[in-house]
Every structure is written in structure tokens, then in C-alpha cells.
Design a protein around this nucleic acid. Structure first.
Lengths: 114, 114
DNA sequence: CTTGACCCTCACACGGGTGTCAAGTTTTAG
DNA sequence: CTAAAACTTGACACCCGTGTGAGGGTCAAG
């Protein structure tokens, strides 16, 4: 599929898809004229990238983390540490958000009642 | 308390405290020489501001939301809507993060086992 | 009064993913 | 073959909370 198709399917802009490639997160083959072509599997990969981005991981971190998804690659100890550290970060972030959600929910409730 | 004290207690930089004031989120009185003084209650308020900021609310939204915390003020219908909408957004964000956390946890697990 | 710590305002820079525009090339439909 | 649609690279702008530094004023202790 070409970039417009992948964009339509995933909801990521073409700009973002090119950026992901530039950051080494997403591969493409090129047609004779230089236009990008993606395999079907790119759809899932883009979804994954977007999930991780929206969780606050930056592209460098995602680049570290992504390789261990498709191949059984590169089991360096620092990668394990990196994964664990990001997992902790996300967990903490979720806890913070839950607390904030409580606050907002309390406000909404008070608004209804008061 | 002066800005340095409030900064030390809350962990927010003086720069941030001034910014919160500039955005109408945090009030201060001024000494004769123009230096800021905060009441004790500012500590809690700064914590709240930081929670909301880290939840992804921007300062304009927080400014809309904060008034209903201390006084029983300004019960406009659009504020109710605003609160509810932000609550929804945070809830969705938490759901997304939980999914991402699953992914990361799966990776860590696979790393351990594989 | 002096000194050093603290504070003031103003202004510029950053990160980093994304939007957007320009100028040119490729692909596809008619 | 031609025109339109889609794509290419490159560059610049945005957001917005925060860091940082300059140049100067305030405050409390000696």
C-alpha cells in the first residue's frame, strides 16, 4: 500500500508516517520512482507506534523498544532495563491520572449536587 | 511564604509559580518592594495545578476548572460541560495508557521468559 | 551601611511530534 | 498523450510549560 492508504487506514498523517520512517520506527520499500510502499503489517506497527507515543515515550525510546516485538532480537541487558523503566513510568503516569480523575469526578459530582 | 519557600515545598520551580500566576491560576500578595507572598493554602493549590497539568489539561482549561474548587462559584452550564468533557478525556487517556502498559508488560515478560 | 541571599521583570530557547507550504516528480485515469 | 491526483524532499512554524540568563531591586543579618 502507498502512504495515502496507510494514512487513511491508521489515521496517522502522511507527515507523521514519514517522520516515523526518519526516526527508524517504520520501514518502507520504494517504487522505481521513489514512492513509498508498505506491507500490510505496517498498519499494526503504526498503531503500536501511536500507542507508545501517546503514552509519552519519545521516538528514540520507541526505537529501542520496538525491535523486540517482531524478531527475538537484541536482548541486551540495558534493553530489559529500558523496558522496565518505561513500564514503571507508564504505571506511575496511570496512577497520577487516576488521582486527577478522582479530582475531576469529585468536581463534576459536586457540581451536580451543589 | 515567599516564592522560594513555596517552590521548595511543592517542587515547582519559581519560574513555574510565576507562570501559574501569569495564567491566572495562582494568586499572590506583594510586599512593599514587590515580592510575592503566598498563604499556606497555596501549597495545596500548586499541587492541584500540577496534577491537572500532568493530566494534560492546559492552563486555560485549568483556569476554567479551578474556580469551582474553593468557592461555590460560577455554575455556568458550559463549565459543567467543560468539566465533564475533561473527565471523559482523562478517562480515555487512562484507558489508552492501560492498553499501552499491557503491551510493555508483555514485552518485559517475553523478555524474561524468551 | 554593607553584604549576600533572595527576588523582580523581560526575553530568548528548547523539545518533539505535527501542520503546512513550496517546488518538483511519479503514478494513474481518461 | 495529457491532466489530475498522489507522492517526493526540504524547510519553517506551532504549541506551551519550563529552563536560563541578564540587569537590577529587596530584605534580613552583621
Amino acid at each position: 500500500m502507498r502512504i495515502g492508504d496507510l494514512s487513511a487506514v491508521t489515521g496517522a498523517s502522511a507527515r507523521s508516517l514519514r517522520y516515523y520512517e526518519e526516526q527508524g520506527l517504520l520501514a518502507s520499500t520504494r517504487s522505481g520512482g521513489g514512492q513509498r510502499h508498505y506491507p500490510e503489517s505496517a498498519v499494526e506497527r503504526v498503531g503500536l507506534i501511536q500507542s507508545l507515543l501517546s503514552a509519552g515515550l519519545n521516538s528514540a525510546t520507541i526505537q529501542d523498544v520496538l525491535p523486540c516485538i517482531n524478531n527475538e532480537a537484541i536482548r541486551t541487558p540495558w534493553l530489559a532495563e529500558r523496558l522496565t523503566s518505561e513500564l514503571d513510568r507508564v504505571t506511575r503516569q496511570i496512577d497520577d491520572l487516576n488521582r486527577t480523575r478522582e479530582i475531576l469526578a469529585g468536581l463534576v459530582e459536586r457540581y451536580r449536587v451543589g
